[in-house]
Design a protein around this nucleic acid. Structure first.
Lengths: 290, 290
DNA sequence: TTCCTAGGGTCAGAAAAACTGAGTCGTCAT
DNA sequence: ATGACGACTCAGTTTTTCTGACCCTAGGAA
């Protein structure tokens, strides 16, 4: 014997993962976002699978995709399997680097809220290494290798502080702002992903005034804050993210009116971390640091 | 916001699979064989993982590898996860092609035992499609996408017939072979992977004679059989694989002495197939066809 | 209606991953 | 001491995976 023709390849793991994500999330785009690839890649993966199987896993409607009966039948098993794999990877990472805590958060939170606290946190727990990864969307903690997620979120569990917004500016500028109505002549800075902030605040501060903010829009909130400190205009501030500057006096709040949003800065993990473990200790410390 | 640096890639699935196989099987070569790649590929995968983790998973001894404490701690979870994934894939395949039975077997068995039975099997179960994949080593049915394995094996469960060996040759040649001792002048065909066959048989047929077979060695047993039918010499035959030719008269057994080996032709599956399902029906039919 | 948008699909080309093949080394068993 | 075994290395190649720019369709908004 001793003839070994290259074995028929089994189904590719990445394609299976793409199928699982697409099926679980109900769409190729959502799956692409979770996997960090383009939708076209997911399309290709699913098609690979369907071709190999000789059967359709999704019905394509122009408005999206829907699982076929076949897909629906096999999905739970795949979700469970990939959950198990994700858990195994997390175990592996934890065991391999027992003193490292991985935190996923928004870039703005990382720079404006987390970063100022790190020196004290390091001092309080010098044996724990903190790794911070910035991203736009909370990761799926069942899959991605993070111990803690820190994002704005409506859920109450693990809330560190409510999200409260109000205008802030450099002290020199505040002198020219006596009443909210003075804002119509000012440069009103805002953030692209939080574009409703000004309108939300104005609806409370100037009811019926149909206020339209005029000013630069930033794609990085931390940059908008920096510009505001430099006197570029009035920023619609988020309490948690401008608190340090207010305390320092770099920024001031020219008006009293503050608006509490339905969400808050929230810290959570997949399942409760082992009590007393590094992740647990970091979480408790951050929750107490508000 | 809206800045999305490419997410830090998670651990590559194929590398995890390589680790799992290497850890479970206790060596990189064994893992390479199961995965159908070269050992170098496994080496590279494991190193990728170890670099990403910053920790060793194996201790390299010159004589092989041994799991580190870390590797030992995480292995069971990975085995379970990949088992779950393999089961999910099998479910998927079964659901996608409910009437297809995938059989893994030796090339020689496929050609000389299975193939002659297929017409009758197809007639008996016309709605079932049979897919046969030839390979040198029984696959790990927990992982590879086969329903049934058909190999020579020592285990008694599922044995179809014992492996019995004895010389066979074309009828014209048999006239020149009166006693086993006449073999010393004959061309004795054999198979590379079953190179001990002649010695085993000779030890019983010619005790103390120190028989050394002389003749071509084949890497495909079916080819050796073909040559034997063509009169190229005397082959050490395996009952199951030459039975059809003996029945037809293409080959004859010049001597009475037959030697029963410790193994037999064995048909098995990972877990018992669903009673009455296609795999179960094919298995029963084959077992009854001896 | 007509636009706009949210999904998908397609394709060629590019990037990254995976793999091979041939050669090396160190030990164990013969 | 010699061969077998198991792992490692590395350059080069193959395969997989991904992107980017394009298209298409239907539903909802203007």
């Amino acid at each position: 014997m001793a003839v070994s023709p290259p074995r028929p390849k089994d189904l590719p793991l990445t394609a299976l993962r793409a199928f699982e994500a697409a099926a679980r999330l109900g769409g190729f785009s959502a799956a692409a976002a979770e996997l960090g690839v383009t939708p076209g890649a997911v399309t290709a993966h699913v098609k690979t699978l369907e071709t190999a199987l000789g059967a359709a896993l999704f019905d394509r409607t122009t408005r999206g995709v829907r699982l076929t009966a076949l897909g629906r039948r096999v999905l739970p098993e795949f979700v469970a399997a990939f959950d198990a794999l994700g858990a195994a990877v997390r175990t592996l990472r934890r065991e391999a680097a027992p003193r490292t805590v991985h935190i996923a958060t928004l870039p703005s939170i990382a720079q404006l809220w987390l970063s100022p606290r790190l020196p004290a946190l390091r001092a309080a727990a010098p044996e724990i290494a903190i790794s911070i990864t910035a991203m736009e969307t909370p990761p799926n903690l069942k899959r991605a290798p993070y111990d803690l997620s820190l994002f704005y979120d409506a859920a109450p569990a693990g809330r560190i502080e409510d999200d409260v917004i109000f205008p802030v500016c450099a002290p020199a500028l505040a002198a020219r702002l006596a009443r909210p109505e003075d804002l119509v002549d000012a440069s009103c800075l805002s953030d692209a992903t939080w574009s409703d902030d000004w309108a939300t605040w104005a609806a409370e501060a100037m009811p019926g005034a149909a206020f339209v903010p005029r000013g630069p829009v930033f794609s990085l909130y931390a940059l908008a804050v920096e510009e505001t400190v430099n006197g570029a205009g009035v920023l619609i501030g988020h309490q948690a993210l401008v608190a340090a500057h207010l305390r320092r006096g770099d920024l001031v709040a020219p008006f009293d009116r503050r608006v509490r949003l339905d969400r808050g800065l929230r810290l959570w993990s997949d399942r409760p971390p082992r009590p007393g473990g590094p992740a647990d200790r970091v979480a408790r410390w951050l929750e107490d640091s508000r």
